[in-house]
Simulated assay, not measured.
Amino acid sequence: MAEVARGEALKGLRIVWLQSPPWDGLWTRQNHFSRRFAADGAEILYVENPVSFGRRIGEGAGALTASVRRDVEPGLYVMSLPIQIPGSPKSGAIGKLNGARFASAVAKWMRREGWERPLYWCRLPISVEALDRLPPGPVVYDVTDDYAHYAGAEGERALTIAREDRLMRKAGRIFTTTAALAERLGAINPKVQVVPNGVDPSFFAPAPDGEADPLAQVARPRIGHIGLVASWMDLELLAKIAARWPGQLVSIGPVKPEVQAAYEAIPGLIRLPPVHNLELPRYLRALDVCIQPHLALEVRHRADPLKIVEYMAAGKPIVSTALRSLEPLRDVVELAGDHDQFLAAIERSLADADPALQTERVRRARERSWDDLYGSVRAAVTDLVSEDGGK
Rank of each mutant, 00 (worst) to 15 (best):
Q193W: 11
G224R: 01
S91A: 07
V47R: 02
T65A: 12
G99L: 11
A105D: 09
P281I: 05
I188T: 13
V250D: 10
R330A: 05
D71M: 12
L278N: 13
Q358Y: 02
F102M: 15
C122M: 08
A296W: 07
M110L: 07
A345P: 03
D304A: 08
A216Y: 09
A262W: 08
L45R: 06
L131A: 05
H339E: 15
G186Q: 06
L284G: 00
D331K: 07
I291G: 01
A61T: 04
V319I: 07
V78R: 08
G137E: 03
T28I: 06
L326T: 04
R14W: 09
G87M: 14
R166A: 11
N31T: 00
K11D: 15
A219Q: 08
P214Y: 03
V68S: 13
A314P: 04
R302D: 15
G337K: 00
E367I: 05
E8Q: 13
S127L: 12
A171H: 11
V309S: 00
F175H: 08
E264L: 07
R363V: 06
A351D: 06
D352R: 08
A148Q: 13
A39W: 07
A182D: 02
A216Q: 00
D165V: 10
L18M: 02
E360Y: 00
P86H: 09
L124Y: 15
E298K: 09
T321F: 02
P135G: 05
A205W: 04
L167N: 00
L297H: 07
S349N: 07
G375D: 01
W23H: 03
F342Y: 02
D200P: 05
P281N: 05
W370N: 06
R70H: 09
S67I: 07
A130N: 05
L237M: 12
H301G: 10
F33H: 12
E327R: 13
A148D: 14
A219K: 10
S67R: 12
V250S: 10
K191L: 14
P118D: 01
Y263T: 03
Q217M: 15
A207S: 05
V229M: 09
G41Q: 05
A207I: 02
F204Q: 11
